[in-house]
């Protein structure tokens, strides 16, 4: 099973690499996105000597890491899933010898691999232009990687939930953007959570999104003590299981309604 999932992941990876230019353009896109944020905070730092309570090196590193992690958190295959529902491809996918969720998890592995490579390239390119801080310690760095890996079940389940909406409506484009916007706001993509109002910080403590971006980066920067990380890991796991069950239930309910368009 794992073997066939990895095979599907490899196929997905190769699909991305049909055009080698993809990789360079995606990386360029990332860099273009980060420029604005960095210069805005640098301007504020030059004016007030303070960038939202962080030092300017920390702020720049924060945004560069955000740009590197963004594809890993946001990219996924829910567009493909909705597409396959729309054009009737789904009847083949449902008859696959591996389950539908496993099939798409295989795709997700390919996406994840490509996103990781783009993220790494972005990080290296940005490190040439700006001064980037190195991880607080090797333990912090390993925990940073571990927390990101723990976010995979969460992002995958969210993808499946949004993709399943494709059973009910013809276009999931709006839902897709909603998913991206919610993750962007609550995970700290647009700004570190500590800069938001107090009520928002309390709210984001309960939601799973903060652990996708904000927490790993703060671990990288050494802002979170090792004792707290244990609680974070437990929270991540609970959310991962909860969302996975929700996605499974929603899908099992929706798949009974499938009407195949001209399959």
């Amino acid at each position: 099973m794992l073997k066939s999932m990895l095979k599907i992941g490899k196929m997905r990876w190769q699909e991305y690499n049909i055009y080698p230019s993809n990789f360079y353009l995606f990386t360029l896109n990332r860099i273009v996105e980060v420029v604005v944020y960095i210069f805005v905070w640098q301007a504020i730092y030059n004016q007030t000597g303070n960038a939202g309570g962080l030092s300017i090196e920390q702020m720049v590193t924060y945004y560069i890491l955000v740009t590197a992690l963004r594809p890993i958190i946001l990219w996924g295959c829910n567009e493909e899933m909705a597409h396959s529902i729309r054009n009737g491809q789904i009847h083949k996918e449902l008859l696959n010898p591996i389950s539908y969720f496993q099939y798409y998890f295989g795709m997700e592995i390919g996406e994840f691999a490509f996103a990781t490579v783009v993220g790494l390239a972005t990080f290296v390119c940005c490190a040439i232009f700006w001064k980037v801080m190195i991880p607080a310690s090797i333990v912090h760095f390993l925990l940073f990687i571990f927390i990101i890996l723990l976010s995979v079940p969460i992002t995958f389940s969210l993808q499946m939930i949004v993709g399943t909406v494709g059973f009910y409506s013809n276009s999931i484009w709006g839902m897709q953007i909603l998913r991206k916007a919610i993750i962007s706001i609550f995970s700290g993509i647009i700004a570190p959570i500590t800069l938001f109002p107090q009520w928002f910080q309390t709210l984001s403590n309960f939601l799973p999104f903060k652990e996708l971006i904000y927490t790993p980066i703060n671990i990288y920067l050494g802002q979170i003590s090792l004792n707290e990380i244990g609680i974070i890991i437990i929270k991540q796991m609970i959310w991962g299981i909860l969302l996975y069950m929700l996605a499974k239930l929603f899908f099992n309910h929706a798949v009974k309604k499938v009407t195949i368009n001209g399959g």
Partner: peptide, 10 residues
């Protein structure tokens, strides 16, 4: 959020 931290930007 940026303007929570500063009055003016340049």
């Amino acid at each position: 959020i940026v303007f929570q931290n500063t009055e003016t930007l340049v």
